[in-house]
Design a binder for these strands. Structure first.
Lengths: 229, 229
DNA sequence: AATCTTAAGTAACAATTATTACAAACCAAA
DNA sequence: TTTGGTTTGTAATAATTGTTACTTAAGATT
């Protein structure tokens, strides 16, 4: 019997749900912390799953009715302006929720945010009403949400730092290292064009800077592929 | 008898505290919504006030022990990097709390954030323990905090937009209009150097762009003063 | 009024990033 | 192997922003 933080357990329950575990099995596993009422309630929730590959999944034009909770894979969150320019804000990893969606759900603001799955990902959508309900009644859920806010906050601060204080070559190199870490491989499969869009600049600029990095022996370039040395 | 949202009332109580209102008067005013226990608790809190003028107030190097709640005036929140470069992130107005501080308090992250009062401001510092306590036990406080997060979130998104998608001249003009709105006057009292620091650029650049704006009849320049037309 | 300090204006130049246009290389399918 | 589409490399040039160095102007102080 291993100890997890409450919200992680709550999260585990979702995963089990997703894997179609039997209710009895679930209860046996988790009732030592969460009471039956809570489990029952979770079972009631109309969750649905989505499999995503490399495609737009959330285009927030009208207020959302569900909050995504990422089970597996990772999703990048992009900001978009009126002219269609884009900028990567942060990556969502498994076990995380998108605070941006919370903001959209609860507030009236219509935010232009795009979420793109970089590899196959699975997520559960939680209805907003449940969301609000749990926020009031379940302290473990509350902590999960508060911690999410804080993580996102820190990451947004970092994004601001990057934009404000770093030059394009540094931003590029950092971005490469981040992607490498995220996909757990020193070889990244991307084309220059994609990087350019994430960092909101042009392909030519990225190619130029990548060439420089290669000359500096920091990376090795091939078609559709960048290896970090 | 006027209706306010719960957290606003809570906030009003703070203001009253600050104004040294008699406890009896407070209870008479607010107990129709908040029970006596809560009021009692608020009275127990070790609040203290600070008066600030144009000076650094919070330099977050070690975890904070108190959360500021702004009663009057306004405070600008700046991001700082290792080399001492700065960038304005957002303005705090009366009735707001600094979510950045929450992040610092609750998490372990040591953030480099500077808060500067642009005019005389008053704030109350709330001990972190109380903070956490209320979060669990008082739904009106909880909503206040969640709403704060959301407001800040939106504002940080806007900052990112400005940095990523706007050129310096646009950012400058927007900044001028914001300041004008904040101080409720079409005439802004600043020197070019200060603006340059807020937008993280050099004085010469700002002077140049301001001159352009003046030529375009959008503003009128004098020493230490900019008038928006 | 003369002097001093600070703020703002200006010019010349450097660095960074953006844009355009085209050539070369790579890969897959015919 | 040839073709065609996509990706990358490169050069030339423009636009934006940053830097340095100096001048001019405004306002405060003596």
């Amino acid at each position: 019997m291993f100890l997890l933080k409450d919200y992680q357990i709550l999260f585990k329950i979702y995963i089990s749900l997703f894997l179609n575990m039997k209710r009895e099995l679930l209860e046996e596993r988790f009732d030592y912390i969460l009471d039956n009422n809570l489990i029952a309630e979770i079972f009631e929730v109309g969750t649905f799953k989505k499999y995503l590959t490399n495609d737009i999944i959330i285009d927030i034009d009208q207020p959302l009715t569900h909050i995504p909770l990422l089970l597996d894979g990772n999703i990048k969150i992009l900001r978009e302006d009126k002219e269609g320019n884009e900028l990567l804000i942060y990556f969502l990893e498994a076990g995380e929720t998108c605070t941006m969606s919370l903001t959209c759900c609860m507030g009236t603001t219509k935010s232009k945010i795009r979420a793109v799955a970089e590899k196959d990902s699975t997520l559960i959508m939680i209805p907003v009403q449940k969301m609000q309900n749990w926020l009031d009644n379940n302290s473990s859920w509350r902590n999960f949400i508060l911690e999410s806010y804080q993580t996102r906050f820190t990451e947004m601060l970092e994004t601001i730092d990057n934009l404000a204080f770093m030059k394009m070559d540094e931003r590029l190199y950092k971005h490469l290292k981040e992607k490498s870490k995220l996909h757990d491989s020193s070889t990244i499969i991307v084309k220059h064009q994609d990087i350019a869009e994430d960092l909101h600049t042009s392909r030519v600029v990225i190619s130029r800077l990548l060439k420089q990095l290669e000359n500096d022996k920091k990376i090795k370039l091939s078609r559709n592929k960048i290896e970090i040395l």
